[in-house]
C-alpha cells in the first residue's frame, strides 16, 4: 500500500509541475515524471512477493516457474509504452526548439500572442 501511495505521489508531483509551472521545459519534465510513475505503477501491480523474472531457464521445473513468476502481461505492455514515451518527448522538445526560435523565450505567458 505505501509503495502504491509513493508512486501516486510521484505522479501528482508531475501533474503539479505540468499545471503550475510557466517554463515549457519544466512542463516537459512534468510529463516525463508522470510517465515514469504510470509505468512503475503498472509493474508494481503485477509484482509477486519473492517472485522471479518470467524467463524460463534451463533445468527449471514448469510448475515452480508458473507459481513463482511475476506477471508478464504488464511488463509486455509497459515495454512498448516506454519507447512511445521517448518518441512523444522528442516531438515535444522539437516543438519547444521551434517556439524558442520564433519567440526567443521559454515562458508560457510570453508565447500567448500566437499568429497564423
Amino acid at each position: 500500500m505505501i509503495v502504491y501511495l509513493l508512486t501516486t505521489f510521484l505522479f501528482v508531483l508531475g501533474l503539479y509541475c505540468l499545471v503550475a509551472k510557466k517554463n515549457i521545459i519544466k512542463k516537459i519534465i512534468g510529463v516525463i515524471t508522470m510517465e515514469y510513475a504510470a509505468n512503475l505503477f503498472l509493474i508494481l501491480v503485477g509484482y509477486k512477493a519473492r517472485g522471479i523474472a518470467p524467463i524460463l531457464t534451463k533445468g527449471a521445473s514448469k510448475t515452480e516457474f508458473v507459481t513463482k513468476s511475476v506477471d508478464p502481461l504488464p511488463q509486455a505492455l509497459v515495454l512498448t509504452a516506454i519507447v512511445i514515451g521517448l518518441g512523444t518527448i522528442a516531438l515535444m522538445v522539437a516543438l519547444c526548439i521551434r517556439l524558442y526560435e520564433r519567440y526567443g523565450t521559454f515562458d508560457m505567458s510570453e508565447i500567448r500572442r500566437l499568429r497564423g
Binding site: 509493474i43 511488463q75 509497459v78 519547444c96
Partner: peptide
C-alpha cells in the same frame, strides 16, 4: 521487481531523453 528487459530499455531511453533535453 523482476523485469530485467524493462530495466535495460529504461536505461537506454533515459540516456536518450537526457541527450534530447540537454540539446533543447
Amino acid at each position: 521487481l523482476g523485469a530485467p528487459d524493462l530495466a535495460i530499455t529504461q536505461v537506454v531511453v533515459e540516456i536518450l531523453i537526457l541527450i534530447i533535453l540537454i540539446r533543447g
